[in-house]
Design a protein around this nucleic acid. Structure first.
Length: 420
RNA sequence: GUGGAUGUGGCGAAGCGGUCAACGCACCGGAUUGUGGCUCCGGCACCCGAGGGUUCGAUCCCCUUCAUCCACCCCA
């Protein structure tokens, strides 16, 4: 095979796309119930949007972006995530002038240049929601419950919801310093990646898989002791609202968000048994992003969930989405009689207009072969238009399940089949 | 970017230095007259990811390369 698809991309075949469509329909339905409207933004944007929006220090910006120069010498980037674009649209399209908050959802492909692995692709698909224009903890709780409801409806089990607060530009730096002060004496004992993390993102040391680092980090200061009053209060309210709603969450003070723009609430939904990339949904509050992009200070919350990981989880848990793979009617004609073939074509067309899924043979195969084809695609009925039948204005309707067949008038087939 | 595993027909899968590269599934055709699903018969890899090398001889050994999978990193 000469040309293959680019590394880390997938072809979704009919047996896949029907499942995707079912999940997408479920997501749209839930969004309707929660009063979110869809937004579609470009798949590529000016590179600077992501540098400013996602954060120059993040892995995404530093090594994972698909950036190219177009013929007008503009630097463009395939979107690695969609929140920055939605915020850009909020400003550019003046959504701040509408009723606040603005509640939007999106779904579509995202692109990150990473080594592929279980649950990780270079082109992957996210569904996400954003609530822009309110700092209410109810908004945080709302989107969390939306995500949770979705997974429950889908039937994914053993989910864990991790909740944390990562503070804000007022209080996070203080915590960061406290952590660095704490780890500094142990710096040369930490694992290699944690030595890097020390400067880049000391919060991540707490989450290291190495036992040594875990042990060293045991008595490290907790974020909760450093949150400012505003953040602490907000966090407290989110927890109380979730408690009141009966949501089960786990506080995870070590959970860090990868993207620079997060403030206050951070959450993650995780399923075991889909491999190392077990985060199936991640989100939080990003009160500083709109301002960073040149707008008025505007609070917002959102999350993104990975579509591919949904299917991994379903598969790992032995579940599948019910899909219809049968055809209702196969119309058969006599291969040697063009009149019957045309009559079959016409009947097929009419059945389709009645919303009856119908097929017929194009190749002039023998009746035996056509019946075989009907059987193979799981047709419920075969309608046989033979020369003799056509001459008499009749057709044979054969039930493929039990083999019973009856001869009826051609004019009556549609009604007959509609009644089945 | 780093590490490990793998790469034989549409799919699954034997063979691992020397007979025509097993087998199963799928697919195609046939088993008398216009009728499927079962059974039976027949067909289906000048080639073993690609390129080089070693050898009298390589799918099986070596090198390079590409791809896939898994893990690190990070994240959805």
């Amino acid at each position: 095979m000469a040309i293959t698809r680019p590394r880390g991309t997938n072809d979704f075949l009919p047996e896949d796309t029907s499942r995707w469509q079912a999940v997408e329909a479920m997501l749209r339905q839930i969004c309707r119930e929660f009063a979110f409207d869809e937004i579609r933004t470009p798949i590529f944007e000016e590179t600077d949007l992501f540098i400013r929006g996602v954060g120059n220090t993040t892995d995404i910006v530093q090594k994972e972006m698909y950036t190219f120069t177009d013929r007008g010498y503009r630097s463009l980037t395939l979107r690695p995530e969609n929140t920055a674009s939605v915020c850009r649209a909020y400003l550019e399209d003046k959504l701040y002038g509408r009723i606040q908050p603005v509640k939007l959802y999106y779904m579509g492909p995202m692109f990150r240049y990473e080594r592929p692995q279980a649950g990780r692709f270079r082109q992957f698909h996210q569904f996400g929601v954003e609530v822009i224009g309110t700092d209410s903890p109810y908004a945080d709780a709302e989107i969390i419950s939306l995500a949770w409801e979705f997974y429950n409806r889908l039937g994914i089990r053993d989910l864990k919801l991790y909740l944390n607060s990562v503070g804000c530009p007022d209080c996070r730096p203080r915590y960061r310093e406290a952590l660095q002060d704490y780890f500094r004496p142990y710096l040369d004992q930490l694992c290699d990646s944690c030595k890097d993390r020390f400067d880049r993102n000391p919060l991540r040391i707490l989450d290291c898989k190495s036992e040594i680092c875990q042990n060293i980090g045991k008595d490290a200061p907790q974020i909760y002791d450093y949150l400012c009053d505003t953040c602490a209060d907000h966090f407290e309210q989110v927890k109380q609202i979730l408690d009141a709603a009966g949501a089960e969450y786990l506080l995870n003070p070590r959970m860090v968000r990868g993207l620079d723009y997060y403030t206050k609430t951070a959450f993650e939904i995780v399923v075991e048994d889909i491999g190392a990339q077990s985060a199936i949904c991640g989100g939080g509050r990003y009160d500083g992003l709109i301002e960073e992009l040149g707008g008025e200070p505007t609070p917002a919350v959102g999350f993104a969930l990975g579509m591919e990981r949904i299917f991994s989880a379903l598969k790992a848990q032995g579940d599948d989405i019910e899909i219809e793979d049968d055809c209702s009617v196969f119309v058969i004609s006599s291969p040697e009689n063009q009149q019957t073939r045309k009559a079959a074509f016409s009947l097929c067309y009419e059945l389709r207009r009645l919303d009856i899924k119908s097929e017929l043979d194009y190749e002039g195969k023998s009746i035996k072969a056509q019946l075989k084809a009907a059987n193979r695609i799981n047709a419920a009925y075969a309608v046989i238009i033979g020369s003799e039948e056509l001459a008499a204005g009749q057709v044979i309707v054969k039930c493929m399940k039990d083999g019973e067949q009856t001869t009826i008038a051609l004019a009556d087939v549609k009604e007959y089949l509609l009644g089945r």
